[in-house]
Design a protein around this nucleic acid. Structure first.
Lengths: 197, 197, 197, 197
DNA sequence: AATGAATGAGCGTTCATTCAT
DNA sequence: GATGAATGAACGCTCATTCAT
């Protein structure tokens, strides 16, 4: 069964936004890639920004779905093992959603509306992760917890970008990469509650 | 001595790229901000992309300069304290270079050339940090070390963006933030060599 | 019997042309108003201009019909009373054909073809009125008579537009309005054959 | 001395709006007529509607200026002679502003903004004429006076359009035409206060 | 060096019209 | 007859870049 035109356009747009960025992707490129006429695009989307928003939202939704129902807390694993699983799973998610990684890099905030979408996405993902992690570090204030989560997201995101995209690796050494991320900051002596000097 | 016109243009462009992003910043905005005529711009830069590249390079250079001569390795501090200092210093650097943080977020890769610059920048900064960190984790392969460093950069960058820009904080709680970053992954038991399950 | 589709389209088009003008009325509006599919329109009309022409012609035809069989000449009324009746009847006709007034105002000459239709209409209406009025002013040349008639049409049309459309009045003060139109130029001394100075 | 570019554009636009109407006049026509590049147009005008508004306003202003300082009331002429002069002068004004007559016919209300301009124009011109005519017919209510004035405007406008544009006449028979307009309604017996039957 | 008016290629978008079903 | 998805030419407008002064 042929995918419907709307899906074809979304796929074409995704590919081009990823490859060229929002501003360098012209409607003429998208319709050529999709094999349709210029006007046909506007039967399915209000504007260029409209497809972009929809493409982004769809990608982010996939990430949220992949991340959300993580039944780790009830899995009987040790805290450390749970943490390991969260990071590993996140890397796999980014691997399977490489386009969104590229798009986030290529289009920081192509337009104010787009910036809102990204902000909301991070906000949601942060909230999910805060709930997941809170039990592990009950002594953190909400503010500290949020900072912690954002920093973790940044860590995983950058590592995934570097590993899967810049270096072009696959999932072969996934456990090694996860292990490295687990050991961030740990090489220097472990949780001795080291105070700021 | 009055700053010469070239510097004025760079400053104007930096301000506007930060505020509006590359594609929303028009030459007409830059020259108005700089108080010069439209044509004058082209006496100093060969194109819009040219000035963007130069602005980016200048910002990244400042970060490299601020980061490079960190004589931490020879400071007699404990490993942990050195690590703390590196992270803290990096946060301060980002605080003082908020524009570059914003620009990196707003203009992922405005054009292929720009993407190269960012790649090269991360490459350099990574190399500097690898040298700094290598002694602490001599058992890491170069590949692992590189992944480690990129992940750390991602962590600090995201934390800085969230803290200084999204939340608009200043340096008041810098030590708290540094402490949070230090404890990433540590809350769950420390370096017990935990293998992947 | 339900009106056939052609009539429905004409009615929809009339309504929209009146409301929005020719250029702001899109085929998509007309078919939505008519409750038919886009393609169906072209089974009944060969183009947008075609339907406009037909709408206009139909309106003008109604006016001609309403005006033509005015059996005033044979009614035994005084000349003055006949004149009064002609003007009054014309105002009533315009009142009942407000759409055409609006369309004439909104679409002076949407296209060259349309302009011809309007010209022909005025030509016909002029000819009808010339026959009606000629007996009253037998000393007029044909050229003078034509000028007289056109001027009268302009007078009635503008008064009707102003009164019924801009001001939104109904027929309540119809006699007052007719009276005012009757007295145009009369306030200053009547038919003394006043020569040009 | 060459007229400046803005004036050239206005002249070109006036000519084309008159000839083709607002919607059929494309920016590409205007710039070709003016002998400038497409982009140059936008140095002088914000948009197509902007030039149209300015062209219209300029024409209407000329008419108002020509009409306003009519020092008839103080001229020592008889009422009838004054009336004659007002009509004659109006015809001459329309003769010298034929373009506006054509544009008014061709672009009833090309857009809502344009409609406002026309409405305001008629409102102003009406007000000027009401002041001029009020002394002649002191027994009229303001409402009657306004209707009277609008009807007169319609009469003169239509006559001018027919005579100068459709028929292409010049001013040769101006006095004859004025005379005809003066006698509208008069042929039938004069101001005998004839009531509606 | 400095200007700023002028350029024109190229964009996103619209919409009257067509045609396979 | 009826449909409505598809078309693509054409539009108004933008803006990086040029060049005569």
């Amino acid at each position: 069964m042929a995918p419907d035109k709307r899906e074809i356009i979304i796929a074409s747009a995704l590919k081009l936004f990823e490859e060229l960025g929002y501003h360098n992707t012209k409607i003429s490129h998208i319709v050529k890639e999709a094999g349709i006429a210029q006007g046909t695009f506007y039967l399915y989307f209000k504007s260029k920004e409209d497809v972009f928003r929809i493409v982004i939202e769809q990608c982010l939704e996939e990430i949220l779905v992949a991340l959300s129902p993580e039944p780790l807390a009830a899995s009987g694993l040790s805290e450390r093992e749970q943490h390991y699983q969260v990071i590993r799973a996140s890397l796999v998610i980014y691997y399977h959603n490489k386009p969104i990684l590229r798009i986030l890099k290529r289009n920081g905030a192509a337009s104010p509306e787009i910036e809102d979408i990204a902000t909301q996405f991070y906000s949601k993902i942060c909230s999910v992760l805060m709930d997941l992690i809170r039990p592990f570090i009950p002594h953190y204030s909400e503010e500290e917890l949020e900072a912690h989560v954002y920093a973790t997201i940044g860590m995983v995101e950058m590592a995934a970008y570097q590993w899967f995209i810049s270096k072009g690796h696959g999932l072969e050494k996934l456990d090694m990469l996860t292990q490295v991320l687990m050991e961030i900051n740990m090489e220097c002596g472990g949780p001795d509650g080291g105070d700021a000097p």
